[in-house]
Amino acid sequence: MSADRPTLGTLLKGLRAREGWTLKQMSAKSGIPVSTLSKIEHDRLTLSYDKLQSLAQRLGMRMSDLFAETEAEAGPAVTARRSLGDVERAVRVETPNYDYYYLCTELRRKRMIPVVTKIRARSAEQFGDLVRHSGEEFIYVLSGSVVVQTEFYDPVTLSAGQSLYIDSSMGHAYLAAEGCDEAEVLGVMSSPEENLMDAMLTLHDRHRAEAKDAA
């Protein structure tokens, strides 16, 4: 059953099997050492956002394709899909402001993106420009306190157990409240568009580039 869990290791192993590559061949194509690939496939190691992006580029894939099953595996649309996931086996993406843990990543064409987020940014200056993307989103604070800044409303502070639902096309930012080193929230983003995951990864990439320019 563990091979069916939504981990980066499982997905890379499946990709390698589909292409008929040995670990050595995939190492040559990706530029990642064989020993590192082996650890990833056995879920003993993950990759940073930069390395995930580099891996996708070297393999001629989009980032989101690394987080999804193949078309053949997905099969026709049905109403009985399900996916079990936990933070330990989530696909992690690090950015200057947040650590994202994407859940249930093996399901393709999801209309909802569930993600656990650890928030470190504490000020609007540190965060940068407000984020905007298609759809709507819901967040539930798991621990710590979060200041939610939005384009058309005054900032609101949420504590553990509180939640918020917003229009994602409205500029927004989530910040760790004063006195809180790190806050953790469960978020669910939805959109009628099927490329929401691609849009989120593009935002992560932009934030990383902005942080490097600021440094």
Results as ranks from 00 to 15, higher is better:
L37E: 07
S2Y: 06
R122H: 12
N195L: 09
S35E: 10
M170S: 04
R109V: 05
R120T: 02
E69M: 09
D99C: 15
P192I: 05
K118P: 03
M189P: 01
R111M: 09
E71D: 14
P33S: 13
A90L: 02
F67C: 15
E182R: 02
E19I: 04
T7S: 13
A3Q: 09
L103M: 10
S27V: 10
V116C: 04
A72V: 13
Q149A: 13
S27N: 11
K24S: 11
R5N: 11
L55A: 07
T10W: 07
S191Q: 04
M200Y: 02
S2C: 11
T22L: 07
C180L: 05
R58K: 12
E178M: 03
P192C: 03
S54M: 08
K29V: 11
V185P: 00
V146H: 00
S163Y: 02
Y98E: 04
A28Y: 12
S163R: 11
S64W: 08
S123N: 12
C104P: 08
R208M: 07
Y153W: 06
T105K: 01
K212I: 13
E71G: 08
A3N: 15
P114E: 07
R92E: 06
D99Q: 11
P155E: 04
K13I: 01
M1W: 15
H42P: 14
Y140P: 00
S48A: 07
G135M: 03
E178W: 02
P155L: 09
V148T: 04
G31F: 14
A211F: 12
R81F: 06
L203V: 12
R92P: 06
I119L: 06
R18E: 14
R122P: 01
Y174P: 00
M63E: 04
A3S: 05
Y102H: 11
G135K: 00
G128I: 14
A183E: 01
P6M: 02
I32L: 11
M63S: 07
V93R: 00
S191A: 09
I40L: 09
R81A: 09
D4V: 11
Q162H: 03
K24N: 10
D4L: 08
N97C: 08
G9S: 04
A72I: 09
K29R: 06
I119W: 00
V148S: 01
T105A: 06
Q25I: 09
M63V: 10
K24M: 10
I139A: 00
L8A: 02
V141M: 00
G75C: 08
E151G: 13
V78E: 08
R58L: 14
A72S: 11
M112K: 02
F67M: 10
G161T: 02
D198M: 01
R16S: 06
A77Q: 09
D198T: 01
S35P: 13
S190H: 05
S2A: 11
H133G: 13
S168C: 13
Q53D: 12
A90F: 00
S134K: 15
G75H: 14
R89Q: 10
